[in-house]
Design a protein around this nucleic acid. Structure first.
Lengths: 232, 232
DNA sequence: TGTACATCAGTGAACGCGCGTTCACTGATGTAC
DNA sequence: TGTACATCAGTGAACGCGCGTTCACTGATGTAC
């Protein structure tokens, strides 16, 4: 056999490329990602990068997948770490982790949930399964809470609007992931509040208004869960 | 006197430039704004545009200011239109207007609250007063509700976290805009939920999950206000 | 143990492109006399 | 009523730049014999 390529070194270089890309995005915005720029920062010529990613868009896709997986990993790890906690605190801990991950990985979060990069379209077959992973721990936690009676939906959260309920039922049936629509629905409500705070914070709109975002976040989420019917 | 420039025509051309810029952004993303592209669409050469905006960044700033003012105008108009309604429905109507404006002016909303355009920094002295205008109707409505006893903060929303309350008090004192911190605080909580739904919807993350976003939004906001202590 | 060579990672020049901006200019137009 | 001219809007060529991508190549390296 003739000379073979060193898979370890190859993957390390791929990782370096992604790291520098993330660094670039952190400095200049997610749209500023450029192969020539990465090459410059790596003391390599741009064409050399084509050995590692066939195209700029493939690099972006890899970064997006990493993003979703990073978030999912963080949530799954937190879920394990919180296993000893009472169930309500465990869900709360997951939500705190969600925001912490976002603020520690600003670029990845923007890549995943912010404006798309101009001229780039994420391939759905890659991203959809990645998104699902980030939902599972939270939805599952909500489902367990409902089953165990730690969360007893209170008015007006005990009623799901008709169209929404139908849609959520269909989704659950399609996905063959057996949970109660209420678990799904309450997750959606919490998720939107979580995202609102995170995104406003990320673009500097919330900090100036509330000062201590940590405190604001925890109070808002606890209040929301409480009024939904959480028994702490 | 020699020939003078036609102010009306001048402003019309400025407006056309902005319209086409918005159209371009709608098609290619907010970052895709380009003077050459606008020129092309207007059957004009790019340098001609420099008569109307001294620089690309000035055009973007003009678009951002238009955005904030458009949202503020819509809210103020809605506030007037809802004057006959009971106070709680009036606030609710404002919040519905907020989201409707966002979905009818996606580009402007992204420009205002989404990822910043790479290489562009909004001048704060221009944007800050513009943002304030969009808050006033909602905060004022919240304040009136509190004063009239239509909104009686319920636990756990009746307590503002210490640091947050201090910050909000300071802001109110600075701005010399006399409202109760609770009005400000409850506005922040509602505002973050509103934004979470809008931003997730805008980037296609919410629709696939709940189907009927109108219904989801209205139920979520009504539930939030109700659990805060609104007496409809 | 020594040598030929397949395969590797990376280079450097070049392609065509679009961008913001500058500059000297052209031709139209309306006012002043 | 006719003409000179200041000012206008817009043009076209050019600047320097950075981008993604292609291509033919170079030199290193490790394996096979």
């Amino acid at each position: 056999m003739p000379r073979q390529r060193d898979e370890t070194a190859f993957e390390e270089t791929q990782a370096t490329i992604k790291d520098i890309a993330r660094q670039q995005m952190a400095e200049e915005g997610t749209a500023a990602i450029s192969l020539r720029g990465i090459g410059r920062a790596m003391d390599m010529t741009a064409p050399a990068l084509y050995r590692y990613y066939p195209t700029r868009d493939d690099l972006i896709t890899a970064l997006i997948v990493d993003g979703f997986n990073g978030l999912a990993d963080a949530l799954e790890a937190a879920d394990v770490a919180l296993a000893e906690q009472p169930l309500p605190e465990r869900l709360f801990g997951l939500l705190v982790t969600y925001r912490r991950w976002a603020s520690e990985h600003r670029v990845d979060f923007q890549l995943i949930y912010g404006n798309p990069i101009p001229g780039y379209v994420a391939p759905r077959e890659v991203t959809v399964p990645a998104v699902v992973r980030t939902f599972v721990p939270i939805v599952q936690s909500m489902e367990t809470l409902l089953q165990n009676g730690n969360l007893v939906p209170q008015p007006p959260y005990d009623v799901i609007p008709a169209n929404v309920e139908q849609h959520e039922r269909d989704l659950i049936a399609e996905g063959a992931y057996p949970i109660h629509p209420m678990a799904y629905h309450l997750t959606m409500i919490v998720w939107t509040e979580v995202h609102g705070i995170i995104m406003l914070e990320m673009y500097e709109h919330l900090g100036p208004n509330v000062g201590d975002v940590d405190q604001f976040y925890e109070a808002a989420i606890r209040a929301l869960l409480t009024t939904m019917g959480m028994r702490w």
